[in-house]
Design a protein around this nucleic acid. Structure first.
Lengths: 238, 238
DNA sequence: GGATTCACTTGATTGTGGTCAAGCGGGAAA
DNA sequence: TTTCCCGCTTGACCACAATCAAGTGAATCC
């Protein structure tokens, strides 16, 4: 659980989507002013209630962003991977973090202070747009999350999740792999692990999928789509 | 349900928080390029699936932002009032709207196109920060929303909502007024109207509150706080 | 190779909150 | 005043998913 910090590698930083459009000079300035951190598996990077005056970018590894109930129940909001960032909202608005962030695997993150961001923003319209796009994406994900946990039942949430994983792959790639343990995935779907397991096996019994450890083979794509089809209305007569 | 559109009043625009820091010249430019709309009660302003190339600002009235399940169940995400804006995320990221927006009362909104925003952003760092603050706030609200509907039960959600209303008022103002019908509030809390009614009356039976139509008199503030206290953990030992 | 552990599965039971249905009461209009 | 209507309340019942608990199976470690 030791955490050591060191200089940011400007070249590595420039590989990340958020910084790709910036010129080398600007990226070097950022790299010099920020700090990179090695975080060990299970270490906490951000606490609920923390106040950030900057934001984090993930260089390597995977992290979980989550909230906790008083009795320790954990609800994972998102899994963060290389190139993802977090903390922008708190940085811009000054409020305390509503979420926790822990490392799921040994990871590397960079911390970039607010003043630096403000300077770069003022001079790089393209960076402004990148930043807005990132936050917009997050907003969309949260709305979908609310949609899924308020409007769908356990079966629909499970299927919707499988389809979302599948859409990142080609339309004919008939297998998807869960990005984390079933326990973690269940938490993202706001399901008890037992319920998630049950739903998957029910889908298997119906011949829609085949489960091989963390890999799910899709046997009947249209069958799956019918289950979530129209779970959220696109438009209605008024 | 007639919708007519007319020029934006630059002075009125400048009264809104988002535009307050801009110089008169810039605001006039925006007002000239954008369009204002009168929308009648129950009229829809934004459909799920719509693609926006700009965003809306509310001048007057109140609107509901919501999602719908296939069987018509409605989940209200937020109530929008004068000064609030919506559609920024879709504008920046280009994706289709995940939400509906309808007028709850006769209202006026202004539509401001993307290209204009991009120009103003590039030249006004202070506007960038305003815009980021607005989206950050929205993000925080959605996280709280997820927290409330995933980590809290019906009673806790009800109490948390009452306390949130109460915190806008002075600490000794012992009464709050629901901002909309109980049906609408229940939808925001992700509760069936019947459940919301039951929870309120249970709190009244316990002597914590007193219900007079849409006004709730708080009789035991600390009692209420105990109910939600620690519903979401702030920090835990690792 | 056997023990241990962890991730997952499966079964039985329960409880919260949703649904259906009927009743109530205040405000508005005739 | 009487009537209607709408927003809300209250009751009875039910279903979905959580919980508790036991069991399985595959990796890992000695």
């Amino acid at each position: 659980m030791t955490i050591d910090d060191f200089d940011i590698n400007a070249e590595a930083l420039r590989q990340l989507p958020l910084f790709r459009q910036l010129d080398a000079q600007t990226v070097t300035t950022i790299a010099d002013a920020g700090r990179a951190l090695n975080v060990a598996r299970t270490a906490r990077i951000l606490n609920r209630g923390d106040n950030l005056d900057g934001f984090y970018v993930v260089f390597a590894g995977s992290l979980k962003m989550y909230i906790l109930s008083c009795d320790g129940a954990e609800r994972i909001l998102r899994i963060l991977r290389t190139g993802d960032s977090f903390g922008e909202a708190m940085m811009f608005n000054g409020f305390d973090s509503p979420v926790f962030v822990d490392a799921l695997t040994d990871s590397q993150v960079a911390y970039i202070p607010h003043r630096l961001v403000a300077d770069v923003l003022a001079q790089n319209p393209v960076f402004i747009e990148s930043m807005f796009r990132g936050m917009s994406r997050l907003l969309l994900d949260f709305v979908r999350d609310i949609e899924s946990c308020c409007l769908m039942n356990a079966k629909q949430r499970t299927v919707a999740y499988l389809l979302r994983l599948a859409e990142h792959r080609g339309p004919h790639d008939q297998q998807v792999t869960l990005p984390a343990s079933k326990w973690v995935v269940a938490s993202m779907l706001n399901l008890a692990p037992e319920t998630f397991s049950r739903e998957l096996h029910r889908l298997q019994a119906d011949g829609l999928i085949e489960i091989v450890r963390r890999t799910i083979h899709v046997r009947d794509m249209t069958g799956l789509m019918e289950i979530v089809d129209g779970a959220a209305a696109v438009s209605v007569a008024t």
